[in-house]
Design a binder for these strands. Sequence first.
DNA 1: TCCTTTCATCGATGTCTGTCGATGTAGATA
DNA 2: TATCTACATCGACAGACATCGATGAAAGGA
Lengths: 108, 108
Amino acid sequence: MKSIAVLPTICCGPRTEPLTVPERDELAARFKALADPTRVAIINCLSAADEVCVCNLTETFELSQPTISHHLKILREAGLVESSRRGTWAYYRLVPEAVAALRGALGS
Amino acid sequence: MKSIAVLPTICCGPRTEPLTVPERDELAARFKALADPTRVAIINCLSAADEVCVCNLTETFELSQPTISHHLKILREAGLVESSRRGTWAYYRLVPEAVAALRGALGS
DNA sequence: TCCTTTCATCGATGTCTGTCGATGTAGATA
DNA sequence: TATCTACATCGACAGACATCGATGAAAGGA
């Protein structure tokens, strides 16, 4: 459950400063987390509820359980979602600040 | 030089509607265009000027000319940039509405 | 016409990614 | 202990991607 660092500079606004190599690498890595239809749908699904159980996601999408778990890991490592276990179940939530940071990178 | 259709729904805001399959495919395709450090840097470069010549881009980045042309094609097909030729040179511009549409997909 | 320059496209190659079956792990129940 | 369930991880494989050299296309100059 690491915290999300808001990106200091902006990518796509008018007359913005040049990005450093680490900055553009980090931005690309976060956009890559959203560069898959299944992960976009997961984010969209999480944005409609406080928490979603993994079992609900595997029911919703016609994909195997390992595949869903794989996509959740990518979203987790990008800082876009976070999870917590209660008993046998794992619940995932959106990290609104991370989404806001990406939105901020796209301009004002 | 196709026009940019602003996406009708929103991906990541609180309590948003579920995305259809074509909607999430299109969103993922546009995020994928930004899922590479070189393309993020190109977008950042274009956002700092009205127009940029391809020859300037090949000088700026330490990549071959075919590679730059390849990335520009991906950005063009995603609708994020557009180009025009004057004489022997090709000039690329940002499409601000496309960037704004992506920003809108990330929430309010 | 011939040559040069600028950019796009083609073909090949090494690497990365999405997917799934098999397996591992931890909690709940008996 | 044994067993079942929910989820994560591993290993493998097919398809996609980034990169480059070679080539093609179009414009300008001699």
